[in-house]
């Protein structure tokens, strides 16, 4: 379980980094999305990996912390997803504006010599 999760995060982050370093804006935006997926999974895993445990207490009474997932990272991931989504949308607009203005999709706004 842990090894699958960490491999997943690693592959997502590595692919993301490789794509961010590519010269085309579309590759960069896909790379940024992959990195944000990796980061979201990473935040989630920082609350420790628990199986079949809800992040809420049973009504009435103090719950057993070992039978419960950490709710805080889940809240953090939710926030991070929303912010990441908004930023991707914003960058998409800039990307299209750059394509329209410079006539190329190179990240420097001009083709490499």
């Amino acid at each position: 379980m842990e090894i699958v999760l960490s491999l997943g995060i690693g592959i997502l982050a590595a692919s993301g980094v490789w794509l961010v370093l590519r010269p085309r804006t579309f590759q960069v935006i896909i790379g940024l999305s992959l990195i944000s997926y990796a980061v979201n999974l990473f935040i989630f895993s920082m609350g420790r990996v628990t199986l079949d445990a809800p992040p809420i207490l049973a009504p009435g009474g103090i719950g057993d912390p070992t039978k419960m997932a950490d709710p805080l990272p889940q809240a953090l991931v939710l926030t991070a997803i929303v912010i990441g989504f908004a930023m991707t949308a914003l960058f998409l607009v800039v990307l299209l504006a750059a394509r329209g203005r410079t006539g190329t999709d190179h990240v420097d706004g001009r083709e490499a010599e």
């Binding site: 804006t25 940024l32 944000s36 990473f42 800039v94 990307l95 750059a98 706004g109």
Partner: peptide, 21 residues
């Protein structure tokens, strides 16, 4: 400005990812 934004925005997005990590 669009050209500068094309560098400024991704760099800060990646920095934000590092921040979260």
């Amino acid at each position: 400005r669009v050209r500068a934004g094309l560098h400024y925005i991704p760099i800060n997005l990646v920095a934000s990812s590092l921040f979260l990590v």
